[in-house]
Design a protein around this nucleic acid. Sequence first.
DNA 1: GGGAACTTGTCAATCGTTTGACTTGCAGCC
DNA 2: GGCTGCAAGTCAAACGATTGACAAGTTCCC
Lengths: 359, 359
Amino acid sequence: MSARIVRPAPERLGARLPPDAGRKRKTIRDVAALAGVDASLVSRVLNDHPKASASPATRERIRDAARTLGYQPNVVARGLRMARTWTLGLLLPNLSNPMYADIARAAERRALDRGFGLIFGTNVDGEEEATFARLLQQGRVDGLLAASGALGDGSLRRVADAGHGPVVMLNRRVRGVRPSVTLDDAAGAALATAHLAGLGHRHVAGIFGVGTIDTIRRRRAGFLAAGKEAGIATTVIEAAGLDAAAGREAAVGFFRARSEATAIFASTFAIGVGALRAAREEGVRIPDDLSLIALHDSELADYLSPPMTTVGLPVGEMAHRAVDLLIDLIEGARPYSVVVDSAPVLKERGSTAPPKVSG
Amino acid sequence: MSARIVRPAPERLGARLPPDAGRKRKTIRDVAALAGVDASLVSRVLNDHPKASASPATRERIRDAARTLGYQPNVVARGLRMARTWTLGLLLPNLSNPMYADIARAAERRALDRGFGLIFGTNVDGEEEATFARLLQQGRVDGLLAASGALGDGSLRRVADAGHGPVVMLNRRVRGVRPSVTLDDAAGAALATAHLAGLGHRHVAGIFGVGTIDTIRRRRAGFLAAGKEAGIATTVIEAAGLDAAAGREAAVGFFRARSEATAIFASTFAIGVGALRAAREEGVRIPDDLSLIALHDSELADYLSPPMTTVGLPVGEMAHRAVDLLIDLIEGARPYSVVVDSAPVLKERGSTAPPKVSG
DNA sequence: GGGAACTTGTCAATCGTTTGACTTGCAGCC
DNA sequence: GGCTGCAAGTCAAACGATTGACAAGTTCCC
């Protein structure tokens, strides 16, 4: 913690002192004055209000005036009047996880396209609930997108119940919080498992995070069902969390237990990354000694060693739909949910192969 | 692109229909009424205004009323009056890059601590400038933090010059945009180079991105100076960009050119990741055939194969200071700059080793 | 006992938009 | 020519907070 403050030399400062001299923000009244009409008419014309009654000539004058002044309506003033902020909140556990980064990108893009800003809230240990509730209560955002796997159901329900704005869950269902956008996690897990079975693996282990989140339960169900369907043995390994550290730990335990399984299904991209590290550390060669496949795709997979085979789910589309749903709710729609059921896609890379011929 | 819409059965809907029945947001007037005073007094007491003249008993009653009603001042109304939004904009090229994710995390945390929200803007191809300018012009944010390596100097200067709020550059200097917070990139690059020299490497290649950004120039200068200082040969390789793809491409070129260099200094974490991939693909063993060290540390380094040796710079501290600087400016301080000169730290992992004994 | 000086509050304007209600002028119609 | 009806706008009140200016009551001092 050390830093140097650099202040500009006074004479240089003087040279450009008036920083925004005269460049005050233009208001609707400036436009009205220039166009020679009342501000209310400017508002109606610029917003294409149905009740706007202005002659074509006047409309033209107003639009011209707005253009020449570079007028941009002040969202704060408008927000006060209309009780809207045109801002959405996005709750994420963190941004290091590439999947969440993908969600954030897609959500931001879509929000922008629909004229909304996006405020991020990553989980700050211990204070999440208060932080998020305050976002809504202070009127900072019109609604919340919650992708948090870390926040408990109870907290989420309380935030939603505070009633200061709609809350949409991303790939997670919480009793009492109706609207959600979910993926077909079961199908993704099943596709991954079927791929392993197709390669000839007769016994597959799946690493799953804590069992309370319904997302993980869906993946487990898909894994088990696909195993049964293919007629192969399945083992469920519980990891302490959903991140790389938890995946590594679980994988180490698996290796030391000398299981008969010849392949691992990682229920999360990060868990897969952790398992890859564990294999390297324990001297397990992938894919020679063991195949590994992870759910969720990321650009990063190509840069791992070996490149990791994954099953990609339409995460971006989910985020996109979630933004649309949330905006619908903000605009007064009745709650509904969306299941994004675009088919998962297998990205075969270097971490899966047929099992060693028994030896 | 396919999705199923799930609407709740009507009867279930009816059961919980009044969604936020009566739970309207409390205003300052509600508090005033409950405490039996004027709203203006509530405002002054709650904000500890110096002119607040209220008896201790009244203060107590006001605070009590606010507490029992769960009153939270409406930031929009307050923002209109005070011409403030208590929101900062953060401009980043993307969130996939772990370094930017670190910046985002630290900035968000600090902003929150100081009562500010953070709106993200990741570069949207071709429209960046308009997007960012609009954020300020619409009065959505009080100021901007720009960590964009993608946006040209000209664009940034125009945004800053629009004069609708201060702009702080993160680890980049732009002529005409005074305030910036920078790291000691030269020292980081020098430390990395010195480490390689210390291991016995006599010829080191450095991969750098395009030369227009001053950050990269500083790194190159540090690299070259440290090479001279250590009396070793240095080669500069130009990459097309700063990301993993560019790093990979540059490294492939390097390998095919059969350079005499026995070690690579990657000027960016992502470039290092790309180089690692290139080495794998080209059959170059790291660290046996070649050592690799990258500037900037990330948790991810431990998960790569081999784990990548890095030099960590205080990125979080930089973001933290940048938020403080921006808020200072918003509150009327004169522009200044900060150089975070905490010493870079070497994280020795598995990608560096002494060079092969000739042959 | 009559100001001066505090103390404890209240009043009303304001920030920049939006929007319901109203005005004015003109055309059309019987 | 007196009415209705419409087109083209204007007026003024919100939204919820902050803040400069003022008012009423009390204390204090000579």
